[in-house]
Write a protein that binds this DNA or RNA. Structure first.
Length: 719
RNA sequence: GGACGGAUAGCUCAGUGGUAGAGCGCUGCAUUCACAUUGCAGAUGUCGGGGGUUCAAAUCCCUCUCCGUCCACCA
């Protein structure tokens, strides 16, 4: 054995052996109880980032449970990541001087498809490099035909159950990306904008968006406001930049008497509150801004201007006409932005597919309240409950090409929709007409990934009747806390809806990986660290250990080179312990296997007579006792998802108790101590295996052992 | 306007009621001994501020400050 551990000679060789031997399949423990984790499918639009390395937590659990004899299934996959991927691809097109509008739908889709295939391959190699014991025979992609079919089936069921409807609503529209979004995809920014006090006939009202005045269909005051009582229900005459007009005054609770003048203009087509108010009062919708972000023909001479230009021009005109009372330049408010490109989100009226969420959310709340689904760390429950309690209907239509096209066809003649499970209908379900047109929109990616746990398991292993019966509900869903609402909550709702059962029992939420200075990694900041480079530098084992060691699970952590180095050093320590025990064993220490077995028995039962037979010293007994405690602590830590406790305990035990103290104590009685050295080290490697699979396998193979691989050895027992 | 997380040794972080811990860094010693990617010994903290509960608080309660994040329809 080399004096210094060289991970490049060890890590590359084991993965293929494990995979070829079929150890990653749950069938290796055919009779074991099912233990399932579905890998959160990484977006197939880029290589893995450091956050993905946190999958190590899942691998630790899977390897631990596999060793405990469970039928452990860790199912890999990839997400087509609709909008996200299309944006990445459009950036690429931009870099070669093209845009998505240079291609027809089919061509563009095919180009993105090829791009995604390439990324998928890269990602798979990277997941293997990190040692993740995924069952590749069950690999799934969100655009696999059978998955698409499952998703469409749910869509149809929702439609049949009346939980899905098509409606014209105000949607969050990004005029740059040309698509609508769900509420979660809008980010907000505090901004200082002028608050204009403008004159509406006898009234004055405050607004930040004077350019939308052409879309006003009423003016509202609070019903309790005595100042304006006399106007309520009447039409007032107003002077506008486009001439005289009449407008209705309504009374509605939504108006805050304290704000501005207590009078609000109602612009139903361009403001969410106003839209809701308009519905209560049966006010018409008057759209003055187009989907291109420009004023339309309804705004008279301002037509064709962008919203921003129009605001300036309108204010200028109003000032000339004396319609501006005054302007508050110190006003701050929150502006909704596209989470992707930062463009101001324009609320626009649009026909889209919406899912009624209230009932679905109620059940999702219930299962967590009852403990059928547990969230770790528990404090995230507050966030989960809060969102679900106030949930609004979910817009799942997206105006992009990359994704699953919605299986709904519109009939020209009866103006109704025919919804299928994906297959093209021959005639309209309602009137039998043959002239149908498919909705060009695709699903919000989260609608399909929200069905991932059951969609995967219902389509894998079809020859054996499918995995669903055995592996669903899954055991653990582990992901970063930032997608608790986007993804986890939706999986709970859709999982219960489609299968009647929760999709998983325990939700684990890990923290964010920050750059070495504690800043968020981002491409634009240029501080992204490639996990593969780090793995090649320190070894995958060291990367894995560094991610769980020393930081409480669930907390953000900065990538720390000193810590990575420390873990690399730990691999070297392990290597040299192995070298000492294996290479430097004197010839006369060969002992029959029986001795090892007896020591194991003593360790487990503490039979004093055996201690006598093998002349165990106090040092021997101490280390065996400490080993037992370590087994207990590590097992308990993993059962409670306290990964750092397990990692810290093993590091401390192996390095400081075993190497520094015990091994030193055996140097003058080497031959007699050899069986204990071997036994304690082998057991330590088994405990360490879920954390550091490569080096633990390499050294275990070199020690006397039973069985073919540490991966399928039995988890050490402490009783 | 609400919610959550963080503030502990120079740095990165563990530690949820019982005499302050780890890794890295630092100081001194050890070098043909499995390992210098090492070993041994050591220094370093009024545990963010203030108040309270308790025989006892980094840990429980209240409050304040500063960082980070999320949710919410103030025109």
């Amino acid at each position: 054995m080399d004096k210094v551990y060289d991970q490049t000679k060890v890590e590359p060789k084991w993965y293929k052996l494990w995979e070829d031997a079929g150890y990653f399949k749950p069938e290796i423990n055919l009779d074991g109880k099912p233990y399932t984790i579905i890998l959160p499918p990484p977006n197939a639009n880029a290589p893995l980032h450091f956050g993905h390395a946190m999958y190590v937590v899942e691998d630790i659990l899977i390897r631990y449970h596999r060793m405990k004899g469970d039928a452990a299934l860790w199912l890999p996959g990839a997400d087509h990541a609709g909008f996200e991927t299309q944006v990445v691809f459009e950036k690429y097109l931009e870099s070669i001087g093209k845009s998505r509008f240079d291609f027809d739908r089919q061509t563009l889709y095919q180009m993105i498809w090829d791009f995604v295939q390439q990324n998928k391959g890269t990602m798979e190699g990277q997941l293997r490099r990190l040692g993740f014991s995924l069952d590749w025979s069950r690999y799934k992609f969100t655009l696999d035909p059978d998955i698409v079919k499952m998703v469409c089936k749910t869509f149809k069921k929702l439609y049949a159950d009346g939980l899905l409807y098509r409606a014209q609503r105000l949607v969050n529209y990004c005029t740059k990306n040309g698509t609508s979004f769900s509420d979660l995809e809008v980010t907000y920014e505090e901004r200082k904008d002028p608050l204009y006090y403008i004159k509406y006939g006898p009234l004055t009202l405050a607004t930040t968006r004077p350019e939308t005045k052409f879309g006003d269909t009423a003016v509202a005051v609070n019903p309790k406001d005595k100042r304006y009582q006399k106007y309520v229900g009447k039409e007032i005459e107003i002077e506008t930049v486009l001439g005289k007009a009449k407008i209705k005054v309504i009374a509605d609770e939504m108006v805050d008497m304290e704000f501005g003048t207590g009078v609000v203009k109602i612009t139903p087509a361009h403001d969410h509150d106003d839209f809701a108010t308009a519905q209560r009062h049966n006010l018409p919708l008057l759209q003055v801004i187009g989907f291109d972000g420009k004023m339309n023909e309804k705004s008279g001479k301002f037509a064709g201007m962008s919203v921003k230009e129009a605001r300036v021009a309108v204010v200028e005109d109003m000032e000339q006409k004396g319609l501006i009372d005054h302007i508050d330049y110190e006003y701050t408010h929150r502006v909704g932005l596209c989470y992707k490109c930062g463009t101001v989100i324009e609320p626009l009226p649009m026909e889209q597919w919406f899912i009624k969420m209230t009932e679905l959310a109620k059940k999702a709340i219930e299962v967590v309240k009852k403990g059928e689904v547990k969230i770790y760390p528990k404090n995230w429950e507050t966030t989960y409950f809060n969102w679900l309690k106030n949930i609004k209907d979910w817009n799942i239509s997206r105006q992009i090409v990359w994704g699953m096209q919605i299986p709904a066809w519109f009939c020209d003649s009866c103006q109704k929709w025919t919804v299928t499970e994906g297959e093209e209908p021959e005639v309209c379900n309602n009137c039998g007409n043959v002239s149908l047109e498919r909705d060009p929109d695709v699903f919000d990616t989260w609608f399909s990934s929200g069905q991932w746990p059951f969609a995967t398991l219902q389509t894998t292993n079809p020859s054996a009747g499918g995995d669903f019966e055995k592996f669903y509900p899954t055991t653990v869903m582990e992901t970063m806390y930032d997608i608790l609402l986007f993804w986890v909550a939706r999986m709970v709702m859709l999982g219960i809806y489609a299968t009647g059962k929760v999709p998983f029992k325990d939700v684990l939420l890990h923290g964010k990986i920050l750059d070495p200075l504690g800043k968020k990694m981002s491409k634009s900041k240029g501080n992204v660290v490639n996990p593969m480079e780090i793995a090649n530098l320190y070894g995958a084992d060291a990367v894995r250990m560094a991610l769980v060691y020393g930081t409480a699970f669930g907390h953000d952590q900065s990538l720390s080179h000193p810590k990575l180095q420390a873990m690399r050093n730990f691999t070297n320590k392990l290597w040299n312990i192995g070298r000492f025990i294996i290479d430097f064993a004197p010839e006369d220490t060969k002992h029959p296997d029986l001795v090892t077995i007896m020591i194991k028995q003593w360790a487990e039962k503490k039979d004093p007579s055996q201690a006598e037979i093998f002349r165990l010293t106090q040092d021997d007994k101490d280390i065996l006792e400490k080993l037992l405690q370590t087994i207990q602590t590590v097992s308990k830590a993993l059962n409670r998802y306290r990964f750092h406790d397990g990692a810290d305990t093993l590091y401390e035990f192996i390095w400081h108790q075993f190497a520094d103290k015990y091994i030193e104590s055996t140097k003058d009685r080497r031959a007699q101590a050899q069986p204990v050295l071997e036994y304690v080290f082998r057991t330590s490697l088994e405990l360490l295996h879920p954390f550091m699979p490569f080096i633990s396998e390499e050294l275990w193979q070199r020690l006397p052992h039973e069985g073919k691989s540490i991966m399928i050895s039995t988890w050490p027992s402490s009783n």
